[in-house]
Amino acid sequence: MYGIIYKAIEQYVVNSFGNTRWETIKSDSNIPIDTSIMEQPYNDDANYKIAVTTAKHTNKPLDEVLFDFGEHIIKTTSENYSIFMESRGNTMRDYLINLPNFHNRMMLIYPELTPPEFRVSNVEGNALVLHYISTTKGMLSFVKGYLNGLMKIFKEMPEVKVINSENEINKEYTFKISW
Rank of each mutant, 00 (worst) to 15 (best):
N126M: 02
F102A: 09
L130H: 04
R105Q: 12
Y110M: 05
M107D: 05
T136M: 10
S134R: 03
K137Y: 08
N101F: 06
M107I: 14
Y132I: 04
M139I: 05
T114Q: 13
T135P: 02
V120K: 05
L128Q: 02
N98V: 06
E124K: 14
M106N: 00
M106A: 07
V120M: 03
P115N: 12
M106P: 00
V123Q: 09
N122W: 00
E112Y: 08
L96Y: 06
T114S: 13
I97V: 15
R105I: 09
M106H: 01
L108E: 13
G138Y: 02
V129H: 08
R105K: 12
H103E: 12
Y132R: 06
H131C: 00
E124P: 00
L96T: 12
F102C: 04
Y132C: 04
V123R: 09
E117S: 10
Y110P: 00
N122R: 11
E124I: 04
N98I: 08
P111T: 14
N126C: 01
A127S: 13
M107W: 01
V129W: 02
K137V: 14
L108V: 14
L128F: 04
I97N: 07
H131Y: 03
N104G: 11
L108I: 15
T136K: 12
L113D: 10
L113F: 11
F102D: 04
N126P: 00
L130I: 13
M106R: 05
V123S: 05
L128H: 04
K137M: 11
R105M: 10
V123M: 08
G125T: 15
N101E: 12
V120L: 03
L140I: 11
N104T: 14
S121P: 00
E124T: 11
E117T: 13
R119N: 13
